[in-house]
């Protein structure tokens, strides 16, 4: 029972309460760059979920079995970003060879994701402590966290793209056109997501 509670708590937390874009401010650059059309937003979202999943797993393994035992946790920044950059490059090459249609659809976003705060962010979060169990994240928990954070990112991206497509037809004052109105929209969305802050399905272990 505790396991399921843990899973639900991580998932809901990552998607709604601690949404990467709307609460944690991670992944903003592509958020405002790619959210103009719903189709490109979907492509970007799926690419991010995929990259976050594999990045979480690989970085967790390296952290647990190499960095911590040898007491060089300060190397996290360098090693993680190298691993992420290499992984994204590998994924891009594999896509180009085995699924050209998917590559055409997602290909241009993959280099953008390398320098995305969100991917490095989730890798660093997974080195910390799971607030629900009070223990450091296990492999499965960090993988789940990675996937769900990506889903939260995609959710915010899709919502934003839908709204921006409608904003195209409205009369906006000249100074606010483009980015400022997008920021205000994001702010209103963040305000509504703030409502999730008190969401608490299960009380954490230990009170």
């Amino acid at each position: 029972m505790n396991n399921i509670a843990n899973i639900i708590s991580i998932s809901i937390g990552a998607v709604f309460i601690n949404n990467f874009i709307l609460s944690k401010f991670l992944g903003l650059c592509p958020f405002f760059g790619v959210s103009k059309k719903l189709s490109s937003a979907t492509g970007m979202g799926m690419a991010v979920v995929f990259v976050m999943a594999i990045a979480s797993s690989f970085t967790w393994v390296i952290n647990r079995f190499i960095l911590i035992p040898y007491d060089v946790a300060y190397l996290q920044t360098i090693i993680f970003i190298l691993v992420i950059a290499a992984l994204v490059q590998l994924v891009e090459m594999a896509l180009q060879k085995y699924s050209p249609s998917l590559y055409e659809a997602l290909g241009i976003y993959l280099p953008l994701i390398t320098t995305n705060c969100a991917v490095l962010g989730v890798a660093l979060i997974n080195t910390g402590v799971n607030t629900f169990t009070g223990e450091p994240y296990t492999f499965f928990e960090s993988l789940l966290n990675g996937v769900m954070s990506g889903v939260g990112f995609m959710l915010a991206l899709l919502l934003m793209a839908g709204l921006r497509e409608k904003l195209e037809f409205s009369n906006i004052p000249k100074g606010l056109e483009g980015l400022p109105i997008a920021f205000i929209t994001a702010g209103l969305m963040a305000l509504s997501f703030l409502g999730f802050a008190g969401l608490n399905f299960f009380s954490p272990v230990g009170g």
Binding site: G175, L176, L179, A190, L194
Partner: peptide
Amino acid sequence: TVFILAPGGFFTIAAVMALVRYLGN
């Protein structure tokens, strides 16, 4: 308090950016 939370950040930068744009124009 909303200004030191997430939404406040978005609103503030929207206002500052709009002001900068307006002055630039």
